[in-house]
């Protein structure tokens, strides 16, 4: 088997995934980047998008993350995700409903903190839907 990188996906609640992969493609804020073994060490912020895990030259896993951070060294790639969900588990109808609900609440919210929170969530959900649709298309 080819050389591998240790890939770890961590959400605040738990270690979501930890395994050896051939390549991962990570949604950096300045563009998607692929991490292969012996990648130069770097730290990057992530925007909402999809992490693709490659094995044997093909995508084996697609996971949606709602922003976060990635730390890459020569032997491993650690992603601190704010929210992580396998793209296959995304329920389009439920997500659409959640966006609509949040929009309703947002209309009547004046508190800046609560507004910021709702806006962030809507943005994340929309990114999730967009990613899902792109996969379906």
């Amino acid at each position: 088997m080819a050389e591998t990188t240790k890939f770890e996906l961590v959400s605040p609640e738990r270690l979501v995934l930890s395994r050896d992969v051939e390549m991962v493609v990570v949604p950096g804020t300045e563009g998607y980047f692929g991490v292969l073994p012996r990648h130069a060490p770097m730290i990057s912020t992530l925007s909402a998008g999809v992490i693709d895990i490659y094995e044997g030259g093909a995508v084996v896993d697609r996971i949606f993350v709602a922003g976060g951070f990635a730390e890459v060294t020569e032997t491993r790639c650690t992603v601190l995700a704010e929210e992580a969900m396998p793209l296959g588990d995304v329920d389009v109808a439920a997500t659409e409903k959640s966006i609509a609900d949040d929009r309703d609440v947002l209309k009547d919210t004046t508190d800046a903190v609560a507004r910021g929170k709702l806006e962030d969530r809507i943005r994340n959900r929309e990114a999730m839907l967009a990613a899902k649709r792109r996969l379906a298309a």
């Binding site: 804020t29 300045e30 770097m42 730290i43 990057s44 912020t45 951070f69």
Partner: peptide, 14 residues
């Protein structure tokens, strides 16, 4: 480490 976008940008998010 290399930083993307830059140190300050990452710190501001982190």
């Amino acid at each position: 480490y290399e930083y993307e976008p830059d140190e300050e940008g990452i710190l501001a998010a982190l």
